[in-house]
Write a protein that binds this DNA or RNA. Sequence first.
DNA 1: AACAGTCTCAACCGCCTCGAG
DNA 2: TCTCGAGGCGGTTGAGACTGT
Length: 338
Amino acid sequence: MSKRPYCIGEGLKKGAWTTEEDKKLISYIHDHGEGGWRDIPEKAGLKRCGKSCRLRWTNYLKPDIKRGEFSYEEEQIIIMLHASRGNKWSVIARHLPKRTDNEVKNYWNTHLKKRLIDDGIDPVTHKPLASSNPNPVEPMKFDFQKKSNQDEHSSQSSSTTPASLPLSSNLNSVKSKISSGETQIESGHVSCKKRFGRSSSTSRLLNKVAARASSIGNILSTSIEGTLRSPASSSGLPDSFSQSYEYMIDNKEDLGTSIDLNIPEYDFPQFLEQLINDDDENENIVGPEQDLLMSDFPSTFVDEDDILGDITSWSTYLLDHPNFMYESDQDSDEKNFL
DNA sequence: AACAGTCTCAACCGCCTCGAG
DNA sequence: TCTCGAGGCGGTTGAGACTGT
């Protein structure tokens, strides 16, 4: 073997990087490009291991890294993706242009996790905490605006307002199924233990749909009740996701400024229908007539790393099969979920 | 002003996967 | 086919900043 270890050596420096070291690393990568991290320290004149150089570059020095406060849209994306994917920081970071996995991870651990707990939501399962909410079906409120309000109105906290959004029966049935343990959420991953009496491929797809059902439940219950700002300014939000906002905004006045929306009734099927109608004008749409289960579903629609793009597809399925979560689990030996 | 407690986040640690040899 | 190192990733640490008393 000609390979040499790239992180072993005498007198390697650890700890915080100095400005001088940063300059050397930036200068070297500017001239020679990324890669070959094993050799970079020696060639750049740094007493660091290659791995340390790579981390310093990818997490801090890289020119296209966005730093500073996370926007509301970014926060919502993080929460939604965390609900469905768990601590997959690199996957989440891919949906947030110019954000690093390390930054997303830190932001989650220091800000979002605490706020979810404050609002009575388990940051691991994304379900209401049992101790704070005796009714597991009733969505808890996550107030996206609290952070900005805290400075100005520290004595006011809308999180004390009771959750006021009764979800439709369809969504409630899905959420209650999830809450009752028929789907199991482990370490933030939604893993549907309900076994469907179908072929392996369709079973996997159903479980994908189930996973998305839980995330849409979370995002809707939190987004509708929280304060949303116009999605038009958001960057990187897929169209279908933006449309869900637009629909809500079209139907609820002052959504962008109200904290407690107090929506008396929200018709989830109607929302999905609207979503589909909106999408009919676009390309690459799976219409209600298309059987998501039996077709060779294009892989682009079930890309696990692009779940936001799947909303149209699985919401269409939910509309057609509102009771899919109740389907028989007989005869299934399916073990490869998701 | 001094101290203690808390928070933040850059950096490190260690495990895993992939691919070169 | 096997070995092993590079690179990727998530978890954890700890120094410095911040806040409260």
